[in-house]
Every structure is written in structure tokens, then in C-alpha cells.
Amino acid sequence: MHAPSALPSPPAVSVRNLTKRFGDFVAVDNVSFDVSQGEIFGFLGANGAGKTTTIRMLTGLLKPSSGEGTVGGWDVNREYEKIKTRIGYMSQRFSLYDDLKVRENLLFFGGIYGLSSQKIRERVKELDGSLNLLEMENRRTVSLPLGFKQRLALACAILHKPPILFLDEPTGGVDPIARRYFWDLISELAAGGTTVFVTTHYMDEAEYCHRLSIMDKGRIVEMDSPFAIKKKYGMTSIQDIFIQLVDR
């Protein structure tokens, strides 16, 4: 452990015993964790483990059945309206407007967050190096390959420079080259102080995270840095560890 050199900043996300039930099915079962500012928190887990459900509670879209949590200091049980405008969220099945051109989607989402057209254009140019948005600007969103749509959805989620970013499988269906650009951008955002809460099923991407949580059937079964987890299990591949933890 390092001695704190300055006053520690409060966690960006803090969760205690968060639980979500659908009828008598427990989708998220008493999870607790903190995510620090500027941290890349890899939220891994099997299909149906409860990752998206957790993210929906943290982004103010779903009411927890029980438990507490704060995001950016706001209470997930009461101040969810504030949370919604303060964070960035890219959902697993994102909600782009298929009929709109790429440019129009960017203007629309930027507009929601109160950005002027001028500001939006500047941001799009800034992000172009990592996301190559300009080359597809005038295409209709419906005609884009899946990997391009993911790039656009990520752009829409970060136009307003949110301090906390929730990315639910941002690289699903994205090719290996574009995935490296995504992660480069994510690392850059985090280095600039953005907290990134991210899920993925690509285990090589786990290596880019500062800390990982591995979830199975509603519970967190492992949580630590990739380095510490690999050391604990005496394995070099997060994928093998994941399979061992989840395949029971």
C-alpha cells in the first residue's frame, strides 16, 4: 500500500449491498464495491451475471430492490435524475437513431447534454483521431457496420466530457484494430481523470483495466488488479482464470 500523498478524493462510485430482484429471481445479489476517480474498473462476468442490471441501477435507470450506492456523490436511490445528466452511458444495445445520419446523431446527443453545434463539431474533431467519425459523417446510421455503430455510440456518450463513464460492452463486435483504438481512448480519458466503468467479454481487454471485478450469478466472486488476480491463481491468462471461476 502507498501512503496517501494528498487527501484521498471520495470514490466516484460507491456501492453497498446493492440488490435487484425480478419477482423471486435475484439478478444482483448484495454487491459492494468502490471505484476511485480516474480508475478503469473492468466489470467482468458470465452472461446473465447481473452486470447490465447493476449498471442500470448505477445510471439511474432502474430502482434497486435494496442496498445503497452513490455515483459522483449522488444517491442512486434518490438523486437518479442528477446522475443521469452528469454521467456518460453507452448501453449494450445502444439507442442511436438508425434513420439519422451519423452527423445528426452526434448533434442530437450533444444537444441533449446542452452542447452548442459549434462545441459538438469541435469535440467530434478532437475524437476523430481515435474514433474516425468524420469518414462516416454523412452515412445513414442504419447502413453502418456494427463496429462503426459502436464507435458512434461511444462518441455520443463522451461528447459532453462526463466525469464518470459507464460503458456496457463498448467493443462487442468491434475489430481488433478498432478495439486497440477504443482502449487507447479509454486509457487517455482515465489518465485525464475520467472514471471508466466498463464491461467486456474480451479477456485480453481486462489487461487494460486498473481493477477487475468478476461476477457470476448475481455475486462478485473476485475483485482485484489484473496483476494481483493472476498472482493469486498462479496463472498468466485472465481468460483461464475467468473460465475456472465461472465454469462451475
Binding site: G45, Q239, F242, V246
Partner: peptide, 13 residues
Amino acid sequence: DEPTTGVDPVSRR
């Protein structure tokens, strides 16, 4: 066409 997008490593195997 890209059958395993979003499928976890255990099921993928």
C-alpha cells in the same frame, strides 16, 4: 455472421 458477439468466454468455448 459474428455469432459470438457478447457471448462470455465459457459459452464461447
